[in-house]
């Protein structure tokens, strides 16, 4: 498929083209960047909702139930589920889709599973761009389900406007995980499996933690109870999602987040491009290799060499 075919396909709602584009993104194919740059103006419309929380805390079933409810309201839905890739073989079992079965044949729902392919932070490297592709494809709401391994899954904050942190009653360790990393990023807490004993206690615990939290918040994250199996409590989650979006808009935070994200993204891209160009220029050149040898032999130091090489590079570029 050519770049134009992909661009036109995605914009006119063709699943096959969208699927192909996401594959290109995952494979870091240069064509993907071309397509994405042409789609960029058509993005930024979707409400991206991150779902994170420990394994077994019902992320997929919550997404399924939210999707069912939002479909009743004629919202179109995209879902990206991220599962860990094996660090040894690079393979991955992507099993979240099983829970989304009831939406498989709905043409207004698009589900894509992704392996992390070695990327840390709870997402795949490709997730952000895949979400953008689905955004351009025209889905109203996009759920991004993180790996859920716990600690450092804060990357989601860069792509989602609203973040739901899920948890289940029982196992007191989870709360440690929440404390350690994702407490700060939650906009909504969902305690799933409300039929299990200890659900109410969990809600109290999380609320108590929010009470003593030193961070100043304009939005106090609500703590909700749901039952992923029966769908109990899902309506309330949707209400809060909408309220949160409303809050973001009214407080100007949405705009602010948008600016911040554009700044970060531009910064990242420039850094990536610069580094790549620099390397391409230097890698394999005899004077570069000689400098490395001198550093290793302690005849030169890396700080000075780095300064010099970058200065030379910038100078040659500006000439």
């Amino acid at each position: 498929m050519s770049v134009s075919e992909l661009v036109n396909g995605v914009l006119s709602g063709k699943r096959r083209e969208l699927a192909r584009l996401i594959s290109l993104i995952e494979n870091e194919d240069p064509e993907a960047a071309e397509v994405l740059s042409r789609l960029y103006k058509n993005t930024g419309k979707a409400h991206v909702i991150g779902i994170t929380g420990p394994p077994g805390s019902g992320k997929s079933s919550l997404v399924t139930k939210l999707t069912a409810e939002l479909r009743k309201r004629n919202k179109t839905i995209g879902v990206v589920c991220v599962d860990p890739s094996s660090p040894f073989t690079g393979g991955a079992l992507l099993g979240d889709r099983i829970r989304m079965q009831e939406h498989t044949l709905d043409k207004d729902v698009y589900v894509r599973s992704m392996g992390t392919r070695g990327h840390l932070g709870g997402l795949a490297r490709a997730t952000s761009d895949a979400v953008r592709a689905i955004d351009a494809f025209g889905k109203d709401i996009i759920f991004v389900e993180t790996v859920g391994a716990g600690q450092a899954e804060v990357e989601i904050i860069e792509i989602a406007q609203t973040i739901i942190v899920t948890d289940v009653p029982g196992s007191g360790d989870d709360i440690q995980a929440i404390k350690a990393g994702i407490m700060e990023i939650a906009d909504i807490f969902v305690v799933n499996k409300k039929d299990l004993p200890g659900a109410d206690r969990k809600v109290t615990e999380i609320n108590a933690m929010l009470d003593i939290d030193p961070i100043e918040r304009a939005w106090r994250p609500p703590v909700l109870l749901t039952n992923g199996r029966t769908g109990e409590g899902v309506l309330e989650v949707i209400e809060k999602i909408q309220a949160h979006l409303q809050f973001l808009k009214e407080s100007g935070l949405l705009e602010q987040k948008g600016l911040q994200r554009s700044r970060d993204e531009l910064h990242d891209l420039m850094r990536y491009k610069l580094t790549r160009e620099l390397y391409q220029k230097l890698e394999g050149r005899p004077e570069y290799e000689a400098a490395i040898k001198k550093i290793a032999a302690r005849k030169e130091d890396p700080y000075t060499v780095a300064e010099r090489l970058i200065a030379e590079f910038l100078f040659s570029e500006s000439r």
Binding site: S85, T89, G91, L93, G95, R97, S113
Partner: peptide, 11 residues
């Protein structure tokens, strides 16, 4: 998966 592929299982 152990052979390095990404496997989606449908149930």
């Amino acid at each position: 998966r152990d052979a390095g592929m990404e496997v989606i299982y449908t149930g």
